[in-house]
Design a protein around this nucleic acid. Structure first.
Lengths: 170, 170
DNA sequence: TGCACTTTTCATTTTTTTTTGAAATTAATG
DNA sequence: CATTAATTTCAAAAAAAAATGAAAAGTGCA
């Protein structure tokens, strides 16, 4: 414990409680908007205002969640590039810091969660075209217009979303 | 039934089964991406390739869902302006058609689901600023930078999202 | 290599969300 | 205005998602 006080890597400042709670609240809501579980938001919210890195056990006990949740949540955050690990000499545990560039988080999110759906949407639209009735003129017209709109939707999304992520240099 | 065959408002064309299934599949996934329940996607997917309007009972029985689900789902779709009702003479039931302009759907979605969160995020950030410690210089610096990033995130989102909805004139 | 510690995995439990369907409400018709 | 049809509501059931925690797997150090 004395070593921690002397270690320049540890500032020993603890986040003010009220700030920490607001932060957790903020990110729980944000992550839930992205369809991510509560625990992921809690972990990121906790790390976001923490000057020092934390190991998994600290995170779990501070948030009063299980180590299973913490492990899963950190895995998700790592895959989103929303946390980075920091090396702490003399400690073999992994230590985590929040990646405060949201752009990374959003662009990984787009890549992981949205783009795969866009891909499969294209396939689905192709299958729709194959299943169109050939006979009736008036009727085909209606179906073609609808399919055209779906194509525009996927095309526009495929262009707009990555551009959006790029704009988010916060 | 003979009256239906003679009624110009009813084209009597039924959507090809394969097309209908692909459509339902497509919109179930899309709606689920927006956090909306399966039944909402099913209903919209069914209506999207239907030339004629359908009443709630028809929708529920075609999709094999309860009338409770159908009622709830249509309520959601109405609030998103994703369906419109059409008047059918001599029938007191409501009849529904898909609104095929996705722009409406997305802009209502933004207004209903996203913007309220942005509002409350602003309040939360204000509270964070109030709970900052006044003492330590070095430490305040860190917190201020983080809070600044949150502000930029909410400001950028508040500008970008409505602009995005505008761009979606599909 | 073997030990001790750390992290991940995953079957089970808990919580949350969605669906159901019957009762209540609303609205149209004779 | 009473009857009947259509729709909504909502408590309960079912399904889906998330959290738990103990066992398994991984990892570094002596």
């Amino acid at each position: 414990m004395a070593s921690k006080a002397n270690n320049p890597l540890h500032s020993n400042y603890s986040t003010p409680k009220a700030l920490e709670l607001e932060s957790i609240d903020f990110f729980v809501r944000l992550m839930s908007l992205l369809g991510l579980p509560r625990s992921v938001g809690e972990i990121y919210g906790l790390l976001y205002f923490n000057h020092d890195s934390m190991c998994m056990e600290q995170i779990a006990s501070k948030l009063a969640i299980s180590i299973g949740s913490a492990s899963q949540g950190l895995k998700t955050l790592r895959s989103l590039k929303a946390v980075k690990t920091s090396y702490v000499p003399g400690d073999r545990r992994d230590h985590y810091l929040a990646e405060s560039e949201f752009r990374r988080l959003f662009s990984s999110f787009l890549k992981d969660e949205i783009l795969p759906h866009l891909e499969s949407a294209k396939d689905r639209i192709s299958r729709m075209e194959e299943s169109l009735p050939v006979e009736n003129q008036e009727q085909s017209e209606f179906y073609n217009i609808r399919i055209e709109k779906l194509k525009r939707l996927t095309k526009t999304s495929g262009r707009l979303l990555p551009a959006l992520a790029g704009l988010l240099r916060l």
